[in-house]
Simulated scan of single mutants.
Amino acid sequence: MQAFESSVSGILPCQSIETLIATGAIASDTPFDTDQVQPASLDLRLSDRAWRVRASFLPGQRKVEDRIADVSMHPIDLSGGYVLEKGCVYIARLQERLSLPPGLIARANPKSSTGRVDVFVRLLTDRGAAFDDVDAGYEGPLYLEIAPQTFSILVRPGTRLNQLRLKAGEPPRLETRSVGVDLDSGEGGIVGFRGRRHAGVVDLDRIDGHDPRDFWEPLSAPKGELLLDPGEFYILASREAVEIPVMQAAEMTPIDPSVGEFRVHYAGFFDPGFGTDEAHGAGSKGVLEVRTHDTPFLLEHGQIVARLVYEPLTMRPDRLYGEGGSHYQRQGLKLSKHFRAWR
């Protein structure tokens, strides 16, 4: 296998991803969708094969499907659409597969819309030692662990739950910025949303097709404080506007757990052009997916809850985030694209 050659270390932009597709380093069971390649990432799609499993796992020195045989409760055919129930764990094979050249690694992350409906997903590879990370030279299929937490979800072949970012070499961290939470009620009085425990099914391919009031409870914080209850799921917004320069990409990472008993962020990739003037934005809020642990926690306005880590691209991308329209460009506090605007 020929090594991937790049004069600089960094995250691959869209045109480099398209070259990998053209050369077969990234392949698929079906033709790629025209909008599947993002400015600095690739959306991955479910196939028709899945399994209900009794436990999460890492394959270790084995293939994923060999390990599934030990924990599978039953196979699932997704071809006609299938409801994945909250509180259960599933493994699905993805349509894409990789033949990565030496010198190129990959990392996966949930898509924004996946994190905002509290669906926990992690990428698996044959003989993989860690979730979401793909070693240089990996050749084989890709699988996704799916664990809906608050809502049951309807999926089908082609549903996109996660995305892949490819890196050449070891990109330096250009900058790390702290992210605080916005609990200033402002004019509308709403600072966030809490998921309703006994809501219906979210169809993940139905855009603007759900009444948000059936799934979410609006929250206010008149004193600039919000009490997080254990086991509940919250959608909040960052205090700061986020802008990603055109020659960089970013990932939102959790802070040290010693400063708060809660988890922030399921979906952490920010593509180049997010919130920038060149992409016709003026800064966009980062949406925070928050889940508490075992104890109630009082969150204050401006409290640091996450960090943005910026890394360089190997070259300028041919297109930027938000060009041609995006549900999340110039966003404030916003639910996922599956829900109609809150009124």
Rank of each mutant, 00 (worst) to 15 (best):
F269A: 02
P312I: 05
R156D: 09
R343S: 14
D77W: 08
G186V: 07
G186Y: 08
M247K: 07
T276R: 09
V83L: 01
G324Q: 11
D66Q: 13
S112V: 01
L20S: 03
Q303K: 13
C88D: 11
A106L: 03
G281Q: 05
L124R: 08
E175V: 03
L226C: 08
E145V: 12
I244F: 05
E225R: 15
I105V: 13
P75N: 11
P101M: 13
A130K: 13
D271Y: 01
D318N: 12
I244G: 00
G209N: 09
I153Y: 02
Q61S: 13
S185V: 12
I235H: 00
Y321S: 00
G273K: 02
L46S: 00
M73F: 04
G10R: 01
A108R: 01
R93T: 01
E217Q: 15
R263F: 14
Q36E: 14
G169M: 06
G158T: 09
I26F: 03
G200V: 06
S99A: 15
F193K: 05
Q248L: 04
L100E: 00
A69H: 13
Y138P: 05
L154R: 15
A108D: 02
F262Q: 06
R340C: 03
I190L: 03
P141G: 04
S185P: 15
V246R: 06
R127K: 15
D133C: 05
V179P: 12
I76R: 07
Q61Y: 03
A267H: 00
S178R: 11
P230N: 13
D132F: 08
G158A: 11
R197M: 10
V305W: 02
G324I: 05
P31H: 09
V134C: 04
P317K: 12
T114P: 02
P212W: 10
L44Q: 00
R316C: 01
P272F: 00
D118M: 12
R45S: 14
A306P: 11
E145D: 04
G195E: 05
S113K: 11
S28N: 13
R319F: 15
G81K: 10
F120I: 01
F233L: 03
L84V: 02
A69F: 11
P312Q: 06
F32R: 00
G224T: 13
I76H: 08
L299Q: 06
S79I: 08
V89F: 03
V71F: 12
I207C: 02
D271S: 08
L144P: 05
S7A: 15
D48C: 08
D277C: 05
G322N: 04
A22C: 07
P110F: 09
I11N: 04
Q331I: 09
G115I: 00
I153T: 10
K63H: 13
W216D: 09
Y266E: 04
R263Y: 10
D256A: 10
V305A: 04
V246N: 08
Y328M: 03
